[in-house]
Amino acid sequence: MGNQKATIENLVPSVKCDADVITVSMSRCLLTTLGYDYTSISINGNSSNLCNYVYEDHVNGTVFENIQTQLKEGFCGNNVTKNSSIYILSNNVHISPIQVGNIITKNPVSLNFNCTYDLTKQVSVNYTLHPISQTIYLPGVNGTGSYPLTMSAYKDPEYITQLQETDNVPIGELVYVSLNVLAVDGDLFALRTVQCVASGTDSRTGGVNLLAGGCKVDNSDIYVNVSENGVSLESRFSFSMFQFQDQTQLYLFCDVLLCDKTANCSRGPSTRSEVVVAALVLGGEIEEAP
């Protein structure tokens, strides 16, 4: 900024509108210069771990603080306005001032942001009310940090239309499963799904392995395909729906871990403590194919 003194008017966040997540970025140096605590950044002042995950990024020698929100109405206070052609998501980033002792000399600041999506072109925006998904927390490499991991089931290979709680899935129909971790530096880390077991009950005991060692398990009766694993912050695989005798639902249990890209991300975990179990119940009932 040369010799000009920075003011609050200079604090304009950069907003990146992706198909499944919105990323808001701000200069750490500018925040500190203006007297604001970059570690206090949150979406809408929400103290939930899902809404205050901040991670740093380095661009041309400048450190930026990034925070993300999912494209879901109500997530961290998201507001959505939509019609048949436009989808607008709006919210704000809340930042507290730096406090020295018990002295506070500034008010917190809230910076509004929004993303507008043209639904006639951007078909991957999803605003279904009750998708089949679950969010848990994944520990970082070497036990540092904790990051939100979402496991979701989709109807299509583009991973656009999520299965709903009331959807009935015919036997033999393909189900597409995504595991995605947020607030992690994708240049340094990758998500690896080590094992996935399908069961007819809420226990993996007696279930069928779909993935083992990060690879599909060959089974002449069940189709399984791994399209992405251990190379990015998302793991994807698909399988053909099947049914256990006398059971009308299918439960998925997946062991996942966050790995360092500089290491061999294709290896299995060295200890059981490295993995976290994500579980998902496919909604509705399994039905016979017509």
Rank of each mutant, 00 (worst) to 15 (best):
124 S>H: 03
140 G>H: 11
111 L>F: 07
116 T>V: 14
122 Q>W: 01
99 Q>G: 04
81 T>S: 06
105 T>I: 14
107 N>H: 13
120 T>V: 02
127 Y>A: 05
96 S>R: 09
119 L>V: 12
117 Y>S: 12
132 I>L: 02
104 I>W: 09
136 I>R: 07
125 V>S: 08
112 N>M: 01
94 H>V: 05
123 V>C: 07
118 D>I: 06
140 G>I: 13
112 N>Y: 07
131 P>H: 00
115 C>L: 07
107 N>E: 14
101 G>N: 14
90 S>K: 14
112 N>Q: 09
89 L>C: 06
117 Y>Q: 09
106 K>P: 07
127 Y>G: 04
111 L>D: 04
107 N>A: 14
123 V>R: 03
127 Y>R: 02
112 N>T: 03
119 L>C: 10
128 T>M: 08
129 L>E: 00
101 G>I: 06
114 N>T: 08
118 D>K: 08
94 H>W: 08
123 V>D: 09
136 I>V: 15
100 V>C: 05
116 T>G: 13
99 Q>V: 15
134 Q>T: 05
140 G>N: 09
139 P>K: 15
140 G>Q: 11
101 G>V: 05
102 N>H: 08
91 N>L: 04
91 N>A: 14
116 T>W: 06
103 I>F: 13
95 I>S: 10
108 P>E: 12
126 N>V: 05
123 V>A: 07
127 Y>Q: 01
119 L>Y: 10
83 N>T: 00
107 N>C: 07
93 V>Y: 08
82 K>E: 14
137 Y>C: 02
94 H>L: 03
90 S>C: 08
122 Q>N: 07
137 Y>S: 12
128 T>A: 09
89 L>Q: 13
120 T>Q: 07
86 I>H: 11
135 T>W: 10
112 N>G: 14
116 T>C: 12
101 G>F: 08
131 P>D: 01
109 V>A: 05
81 T>Y: 04
85 S>I: 04
140 G>E: 06
97 P>K: 13
131 P>L: 00
124 S>G: 05
120 T>F: 00
128 T>Y: 04
114 N>E: 10
126 N>I: 03
94 H>Q: 04
129 L>S: 00
108 P>D: 11
109 V>C: 02
110 S>N: 15
96 S>W: 06
90 S>P: 06
104 I>G: 07
79 N>E: 05
84 S>G: 04
114 N>H: 09
88 I>D: 11
121 K>H: 05
101 G>E: 10
120 T>S: 11
129 L>H: 00
99 Q>L: 11
78 N>S: 12
83 N>Q: 09
138 L>F: 08
131 P>K: 01
90 S>A: 15
131 P>N: 01
80 V>S: 02
90 S>H: 08
87 Y>I: 00
111 L>M: 09
92 N>T: 05
96 S>T: 11
111 L>E: 04
90 S>L: 02
89 L>S: 03
82 K>D: 08
